[in-house]
């Protein structure tokens, strides 16, 4: 078993990770669409909690992957959304989702910039 990597294996890994990074950028438009759909659901008080749960799940996934594909700022913004929703859901009802909206829009701006820059 290898204890480290020789240059050829390292190059192969880097090439593989580069492809994964490119696929991540390609996936951003779909992720943006999903978030936008949830933003609309968030506006209805009757469905706001379900929207928060879904946004939180998507933000969690994004937070998990961003740092590994060279997107630390996007990951930090996703983490903010995730943490805020955790606090919100642990608190009283009805939910005030104004700040979720604000944080999610900041995250969407960052995602769109990456799509535009690709």
């Amino acid at each position: 078993m290898m204890q480290g990597m020789d240059a050829s294996k390292a190059a192969l890994l880097e090439a593989g990770l580069a492809k994964i990074r490119a696929r991540f950028i390609d996936s951003l438009e779909d992720r943006i669409d999903d978030f936008c759909a949830q933003l609309e659901i968030l506006e209805n008080p009757a469905t706001a909690e379900a929207a928060c749960t879904e946004i939180r799940a998507q933000a969690h996934k994004l937070h998990g992957i961003c740092g590994s594909v060279g997107q630390p700022r996007m990951g930090a913004l996703a983490a903010q959304v995730e943490h805020h929703i955790d606090s919100l859901l642990a608190g009283p009802r009805p939910l005030n989702t104004d700040f979720v909206d604000e944080l999610l829009n900041a995250l969407l701006d960052e995602m769109e910039q990456n799509v535009d820059g690709a």
């Binding site: 078993m1 290898m2 480290g4 990597m5 294996k9 390292a10 192969l12 890994l13 593989g16 990770l17 994964i20 696929r23 991540f24 996936s27 996934k61 998990g64 992957i65 590994s68 594909v69």
Partner: peptide, 19 residues
């Protein structure tokens, strides 16, 4: 992992190290 990209990162990294 439920995220396909994470699974691919894990697989690529492990394979490059001999696993």
């Amino acid at each position: 992992d439920d995220d396909e990209l994470i699974r691919e990162i894990l697989s690529a990294t492990l394979e490059a190290h001999g696993y």
